[in-house]
């Protein structure tokens, strides 16, 4: 069962094509990672799926409602949380929850129950009268997510929800996302942290408005990269990269932190050549050279650069 079905969705702003004929499906209850560089068309896509931006052509069913013909129904069946903190800092926790609950038309015992749930997941029980602006970042983020799903939507869109949050809060935020997904909510999330994308059941990657890859993180790593990645730790990394780039057996180079990654077809012979070239000919000091399992970041960079 699909909770989001996207068919040939396109959005043009004048002559600029922001989203170029993309199609994909999101299964009910899964955590769906939506990746892409800045300006790749992620936000435009999310805005269309939330029913606040009209597509130039194509359509999508979100929670069973067409974004073209039933945008209002789409809006009531989704939750949305953007990377910008979207609660009122000058209202208390309680007042924020009351306002958004009211806007979503909640009332009575159902509302009380949901309010309790939000307070619980944000660890704010008994602190309802605190001003929201005074809460620590991680708590704010959880409260924002809680209020975004206060009406218990089938689908929630999270647009870079963890940007600017410390690693521990990020981890516990992802626990919360998992909990939502286990309770049956479809979570559609964009992120810049590729290690977070590993937590997603399915991932799509878009570049310049076009869909360039889709699948689970394992599938992406095996299907889209048919070569091996060698991780090299040496001195004068940039210089080493410039030398290796010129070699025919090296398909691709990139810098990861202090290390150098190169893509090759045959890792065993490549390692020998690298050692001979860098240590032998140019007298680099190589501290480590290993074949590694490609990370999503490798895949991401590989696909974007190819595109």
């Amino acid at each position: 069962m699909h909770s989001i079905t996207v068919n040939n969705l396109t959005k043009k702003f004048g002559s600029f094509v922001s989203v170029d004929n993309i199609s994909f499906n999101v299964k009910e209850g899964e955590i769906f990672g939506f990746l892409g560089a800045n300006g790749a068309g992620k936000s435009t896509t999310i805005r269309m799926l939330c029913g606040i931006l009209e597509p130039t052509s194509g359509d999508a069913l979100v929670g069973g409602f067409s974004i073209n013909s039933e945008p209002d129904k789409v809006k009531s069946s989704i939750g949305y949380m953007s990377q910008r903190f979207s609660l009122y800092n000058d209202l208390t926790v309680q007042e924020n929850i009351d306002f958004f609950g009211g806007v979503y038309g909640l009332s009575g015992s159902n509302f009380r129950e949901r309010k309790n749930w939000v307070l619980e997941i944000a660890n704010l029980k008994g602190k309802e009268n605190l001003l929201t602006g005074l809460l620590p970042g991680g708590i704010k983020q959880r409260l924002a997510l809680g209020t975004a799903v206060i009406h218990n939507p089938k689908i929630v869109f999270l647009d870079e929800p963890t940007s600017g949050v410390d690693p521990i809060s990020r981890r516990s935020f992802w626990d919360l996302i998992n909990q939502l997904s286990e309770e049956g909510t479809t979570v559609f999330v964009t992120t810049h942290y590729l290690e977070e994308a590993e937590f997603c059941n399915n991932i799509i990657l878009i570049n310049a408005g076009k869909l360039v890859a889709e699948g689970t993180s394992e599938e992406l790593k095996t299907n889209y990269i048919n070569h091996k990645i060698i991780d090299i730790e040496c001195d004068r990394t940039v210089e080493a990269m410039e030398i290796l780039e010129k070699e025919t057996f090296v398909l691709d180079t990139s810098i990861f932190g202090n290390n150098l990654h190169i893509s090759v077809l045959d890792d065993v012979s490549a390692k020998k050549s690298v050692l001979a070239l860098l240590e032998g000919k140019h007298s680099f000091r190589i501290r480590k050279i290993d074949t590694i399992v490609p990370t999503l970041e490798d895949v991401f960079i590989h696909l974007i650069e190819k595109g």
């Binding site: 809006k75 910008r84 609660l87 806007v103 979503y104 038309g105």
Partner: peptide, 14 residues
Amino acid sequence: EIGTMEQLIVTPIK
């Protein structure tokens, strides 16, 4: 400026 407008727009508020 603070981003709440965006949040309001995705709610069913007309």
